[in-house]
């Protein structure tokens, strides 16, 4: 937290500060008077052009992947049919706007189809990671003491296990599927939100209003659910945005290692790793469109996350 400029404080606040000398000032979650969270979030987008661009790109990509196939009909499930009725590795042209891949699948259609998987896994894995992380971090920080020590040591242990190694092991032990990938990626990504939320909780639980709830007989679960988590929501949302981007990248890496979703389904990573087999033959349409899709979505999510972070003044430690 940046050192606060005393000039910004009103005399009353300065007085309060002197009275509190000795006790650490509560930090984090600065007071804001700009209305509800949703209005703050809207404000972010109104101010930051990059965030608008990012949000528009993400929404368009979601529309393309889910509504697109309703207007642009292609066969994306039967390899046999694709091999029989269309030419393989054909360049972009009138019949195939983005060409076909080595199985004869239409690439534009495949980007939509694979995009569904990639986006679903990305958002769902980030959701799981965030939910587990928030609960874990809030409980750990709220109870403190031995509970906190044990729970955080468990986080440390999993942090020491490099993600890809754990992912490789888990996808080998259990057969790969879309649901498993969501669980596995989510399960390796919950550590960062857990740490962040624990940190927030540690500062929030000593606040007067939290103590007031406890004095009035509010149970721990109520304090965590109604008072601590809503106050840490800024940190949580910012991190969740980055989680989606990271999950899409991790999925792409797994696809390259041959551990993406099994055929006939596909995801952007698996498509890209198919395409790069032809990197030396000049079949650029099998690489750049899908690579562009990944990069666009990930960059956009990062723009959104950065803007949210700046606006909500959340200090995060990102890799």
């Amino acid at each position: 937290m940046a050192v606060m400029d005393p000039g910004e404080l009103s005399p009353e606040q300065l007085q309060l500060t002197r009275d509190d000398v000795g006790a650490p000032l509560p930090s984090g979650g600065d007071m804001r008077s700009s209305g509800s969270l949703s209005r703050q979030l809207l404000g972010v987008f109104a101010e930051n052009k990059l965030a608008i661009v990012g949000a528009v790109v993400v929404v368009l990509m979601i529309l393309l992947c889910y509504i697109g196939p309703d207007f642009y009909h292609t066969n994306q499930t039967s390899t046999q049919q694709a091999l029989l009725y269309s030419s393989q590795n054909s360049p972009p042209g009138a019949q195939y706007p983005l060409g076909t891949d080595s199985n004869g699948f239409d690439i534009l259609g495949r980007i939509m189809y694979g995009g569904q998987t990639s986006l679903e896994i990305g958002f769902a894995a980030a959701g799981i990671a965030t939910v587990i992380g928030v609960i874990w971090g809030a409980v750990s920080g709220f109870f403190g003491g031995v509970v906190d020590a044990v729970m955080m040591r468990i986080v440390d242990v999993f942090l020491a296990l490099p993600g890809i190694y754990l992912l490789l092991t888990l996808t080998v032990i259990f057969r790969s599927s879309e649901e498993l990938l969501i669980l596995v990626i989510g399960f390796t990504a919950w550590l960062v939100p857990a740490r962040l939320v624990r940190g927030e909780t540690l500062t929030l639980r000593v606040r007067e209003y939290v103590q007031a709830v406890r004095v009035m007989g509010g149970r721990g679960s109520r304090v965590v659910a109604r008072h601590i988590v809503p106050n840490a929501i800024g940190t949580i949302i910012v991190n969740a945005t980055f989680q989606v981007a990271d999950a899409i990248l991790i999925l792409a890496a797994l696809g390259f290692l041959g551990l993406g979703v099994p055929a006939p389904k596909t995801d952007w990573g698996s498509m890209l790793s198919n395409g790069v087999n032809y990197v030396t033959t000049g079949y650029w349409w099998e690489i750049y469109p899908v690579a562009g899709a990944i990069v666009l979505v990930v960059v956009s999510l990062n723009f959104i996350g950065d803007a949210l972070r700046d606006a909500l003044e959340v200090r995060l430690q990102r890799r």
Binding site: A253, L272, S273, F303
Partner: peptide
């Protein structure tokens, strides 16, 4: 740096090879 960060590692490697 945004672009590099958003590219899957293996893609960077393969483009460098290319």
């Amino acid at each position: 740096s945004f672009l590099l960060y958003a590219m899957p590692d293996f893609l960077i490697g393969l483009l460098l090879i290319l």
